[in-house]
Design a binder for these strands. Structure first.
Length: 604
DNA sequence: CTAGGGTTAG
């Protein structure tokens, strides 16, 4: 049959029967089994209309996405033909909704917006659901700026918000950490007579937890029924958010109490509930407890998934237990739980942080050959470690391999390379990478500029660095790291006046100084042999409420070793410990090594 | 429409 069916015949048949959706779909089902028969956009659009009319949205979305991915049609191309093939028997608005949804699921924000705009010009009233879907996508991809633009545009067209729209406002505000404003949306809803639902509250509870406002989160949960006119009770997600909040702030045991509470209330904990607790115990170094939760979930009939395995494997690497991590990975594979992109990154980073960069690279190679590398993340980890071990050549080769595998380097990839080149003293290569960023139309951010700034200070001159800072300040793009980097630049080129002037200016301005600022100055004073000044700076930082860290002390101790007595060194050490600073290996080497040399003690 | 794991660059 397929050899005699030409595209134009199919199109004419579809057109003829387009009011009989089931005929179209049955015919479509039969001919789409043989490849390449249905390749006219017009025929596809009639099928899409029919699918949507029969409420088969999944297949409609699939077909639209296929038109965009495999055939390269733009959302506007598809819209035009959908409009051409529109018919009164079709639910046209639902088709447009589907097109916009397909765009957002495909990640085509601009495409979705162009469809909305075009429909408006054509006189169609895009449904509020489509707007909501589009705006939800914007929040999800962290384009909150555009979200508010779209919201204002929607309101200006006369749409009135429904409960989903209000929830999106709450969602966006929570993402921006504006909890109080998010809560005021809740009050606005109540005032307008729009009843909030459990999603509204869940987003508020989660938003409160993420900024550490656990009391507020708990208050929302306890008053959820009163605040919703008796319409809402907490669900599993509510409790999961709360548990996550307590776990992330270190109170895992309290988190576990909420597990008991939800069970008492008749709510079923799910795999995420347990995964959250496993993560809580893991990241607090309590692996025994984490395994106890794993057993509890198995008893409930829930099998640990890749998230649970990843969590524990990650912690094992942090604790240096490379063998333990490996045996869990084997266990995971034995149980047919596929390692995912997180597993790959955890393994590569874990091997690197335990000094096994070679193994990490060969693991990476093996998964890359199987096409299992999905994003830039795992590349970025390895590129970072290669740069840190002065192997920018290897790092550059990894960047090239990304292109070969069809992966697009992101701003972190570029930023890591720029910093690697700067640290190596190769500022020219750093600039070349910077030009690449501009070429691929990405926006360099402050991290990138700060790397370059440091490179300029060390390899070119602090005067040129100064010019860059002036430019950044004009666009209000600078932070404490920018200032610290410049301050360090002044110090290493001996510009004492400028350094002090900047330090005073930093203290006066909104950008606050931090422990790094003081460490730079302490280091500078020590280099000049002004140990008393350095000590005074340390006292100053304490009175300013900034705690010295082990770097402050090690810097001071290193200089004192040269000129001061052992008593003074020990005195400073005790002073540090009493203030809660944990000395690191470097601190002890600084204190102990010279004394061993002094007394001629030989461990060998 | 909401919740869990990799936080990679200064």
């Amino acid at each position: 049959m397929s050899s005699t069916l030409t595209n134009s015949v199919i199109y004419r048949v579809f057109r003829e029967f387009r009011s009989s959706h089931h005929v179209v779909l049955e015919l479509y089902k039969r001919i789409s089994a043989s490849k390449n028969v249905l390749n006219s956009l017009e025929s596809c659009c009639i099928v899409i209309h029919s699918l949507v009319s029969c409420k088969n949205y999944d297949d409609a979305l699939f077909l639209i996405k296929e038109l965009m991915i495999s055939r390269g049609y733009s959302p506007l191309d598809i819209l035009q033909v959908l409009l051409d093939t529109c018919d009164n028997s079709f639910a046209c608005n639902a088709v447009f909704d589907a097109l916009i949804r397909a765009c957002t699921e495909f990640g085509a924000s601009d495409g979705a917006y162009s469809v909305i705009k075009k429909l408006r010009v054509e006189g169609y009233f895009v449904s509020i659901h489509a707007w909501n879907n589009f705006m939800n996508h914007l929040v999800k991809v962290n384009d909150v700026c555009r979200f508010w633009l779209m919201y204002n545009e929607m309101v200006s067209y006369g749409y009135s918000e429904n409960v989903y729209t209000f929830n999106l406002l709450v969602y966006a505000l929570c993402k921006e950490c504006k909890l109080l404003e998010a809560i005021s949306v809740l009050y606005k809803m109540l005032k307008c007579g729009i009843v909030p639902n459990v999603v509204t509250f869940n987003m508020l509870v989660d938003g409160a937890c993420r900024i550490g406002e656990l009391d507020m989160a708990l208050k929302l949960v306890r008053n959820i029924t009163i605040m919703s006119w008796g319409c809402v009770i907490p669900n599993t997600i509510t409790y999961n958010c709360l548990i996550n909040g307590y776990c992330k702030l270190g109170s895992v045991a309290i988190g576990e109490q909420f597990l008991d509470e939800m069970i008492e209330m008749g709510l079923e904990p799910n795999i995420r509930t347990y995964a959250t607790l496993v993560d809580g115990y893991s990241r607090n170094g309590m692996l025994e407890e984490a395994f106890r939760i794993c057993n509890a979930m198995v008893e409930k009939g829930l099998m640990p998934n890749s998230v649970v395995y990843n969590t524990v494997i990650h912690q094992l690497y942090i604790e240096g237990d490379v063998d333990g991590a490996y045996s869990l990975l084997s266990d995971m594979i034995e149980k047919y739980i596929s390692p995912d992109k997180f597993t790959h990154s955890i393994l590569e980073k874990g091997l690197c942080r335990n000094g096994r960069v070679k193994e990490a690279l060969s693991y990476h190679k093996s998964i890359a050959e199987k096409n299992l590398v999905e994003d830039a993340f795992s590349h970025n980890i390895l590129i970072d470690y290669l740069c840190k071990s002065q192997n920018t050549l290897g790092a550059q080769q990894l960047v090239c391999s990304m292109f070969v595998r069809g992966l697009i380097p992101d701003l972190i990839t570029y930023g890591t390379m720029i910093d690697g080149y700067c640290k190596e003293g190769n500022i020219n290569r750093a600039f070349e990478v910077y030009d690449d960023i501009i070429k691929v139309k990405k926006n360099p951010n402050l991290v990138v500029y700060n790397s370059i700034l440091d490179g300029l200070c060390k390899e070119v001159s602090v005067d040129v660095a100064e010019l860059l800072v002036e430019e950044l300040k004009e666009t209000s793009l600078y932070d404490v790291i920018t200032c610290n980097t410049l301050l360090n630049g002044y110090c290493i080129s001996g510009k004492i006046d400028k350094a002090l002037h900047l330090f005073l200016k930093m203290r006066k301005e909104r950008i606050s100084v931090n422990e790094v600022t003081y460490n730079i100055l302490i280091n500078f004073m020590c280099k000049l042999g002004l140990i008393q000044h350095a000590k005074e700076l340390m006292c100053l930082m304490i009175t300013q409420g900034i705690l010295p860290d082990c770097i402050s002390y090690t810097t001071l101790l290193t200089s004192m070793n040269k000129e001061r007595s052992a008593e003074e060194v020990v005195e400073l050490h005790d002073y540090m410990v009493l203030r809660g600073v944990i000395p690191d290996g470097e601190t002890y080497r600084t204190i102990v090594d010279p004394r061993i040399k002094q007394i001629g003690f030989d461990f060998d």
